[in-house]
């Protein structure tokens, strides 16, 4: 779906082209075209089962972990089709934050250092510096700087989720995927995550799935509305919520179904 004229100045970071995804013979994503703009926040909304999470998980090839899944079409990451790359390479370049905080059974420090160690970083100074930077970027440094050796499970849910964001940031991802990152959190923790996402604008490309429409309004620059595996409409967030072109989009954002 092409964007209006006023977005021409922004670079396209990833481009979904005539893309479909199958669970077995079930076509879960149907011929989607979508542009993800560099260093902007793009949100995907839609009722449960519309395929927004499924599409998000295509970006880092998460489906490759399970048998019986198949991609069709292209997802270009700066003109390279990431569907033909090694999934490990894709995941090294595209980070992900999950619905439920999923820290590793390790210390706070080791949780962040994990991705660096996977990449073969051995220099202690480099690891220390990047861990601190990631924790600062995820706005959790002040809370954990005195207890980096503590188990990550001892943190609160909101802190764990920011830790997971720091974990993803530590390895400088080109795109950061968020899969309903606040659905398991209370309103205060949610607000801090949203603030964090807004703060990351301009630094990293963000693609976020949310089923809280107001969240999409609060944090995203662009919004894609999906329904039954199809991309119904994609535009600037204010256009989607105030002046959508499609009847179905207008009905959804005004709460008439979903």
């Amino acid at each position: 779906m092409e964007l209006a004229q006023d977005q021409l100045g922004t670079q396209v970071k990833a481009q979904v082209k005539n893309f479909s995804f199958f669970y077995g013979s079930n076509k879960a994503i149907k011929d989607v075209d979508l542009e993800v703009l560099d260093c902007k926040v793009t949100s995907m909304i839609g009722p449960s089962g519309c395929g927004k999470t499924t599409l998000l998980r295509c970006f880092n090839r998460m489906h490759d972990l399970y048998p019986g899944t198949r991609y069709e079409g292209e997802i270009l990451l700066e003109s390279q089709n990431l569907l033909s790359l090694d999934p490990i390479e894709v995941r090294m370049r595209i980070g992900m934050v999950f619905q439920k905080p999923n820290p590793f059974p390790k210390s706070i420090f080791e949780n962040i250092a994990y991705g660096l160690r996977i990449r073969g970083v051995k220099d202690k100074g480099v690891i220390n510096e990047r861990v601190e930077r990631a924790l600062r970027d995820a706005a959790i440094w002040d809370e954990v700087k005195d207890r980096l050796k503590d188990m990550a499970f001892n943190l609160s849910g909101g802190q764990q989720q920011r830790l997971c964001i720091a974990r993803a940031l530590a390895t400088d991802p080109e795109i950061l995927l968020f899969d309903e990152p606040t659905s398991a959190l209370d309103p205060i923790a949610t607000a801090s995550i949203e603030e964090l996402v807004i703060g990351l604008k301009g630094k990293v490309t963000i693609l976020i799935v949310t089923h809280n429409m107001q969240q999409a309004v609060r944090i995203s620059d662009y919004t894609a509305f999906m329904y039954l595996g199809e991309l119904v409409e994609f535009d600037r967030t204010d256009v989607i919520f105030n002046n959508a072109a499609q009847q179905r989009t207008r009905e959804y954002v005004s709460g008439q179904f979903g």
């Binding site: 880092n60 992900m96 999950f98 439920k100 999923n102 590793f104 994990y114 990449r119 993803a168």
Partner: peptide, 24 residues
């Protein structure tokens, strides 16, 4: 989800087994 967290940072199946699943 814990395994997926490890895969998502680029770990292989072996790295995930030994560094995440085993300690968990």
């Amino acid at each position: 989800q814990m395994r997926e967290g490890s895969f998502a940072v680029g770990a292989t199946r072996l790295q995930t087994s030994f560094n995440v699943v085993l300690p968990a």
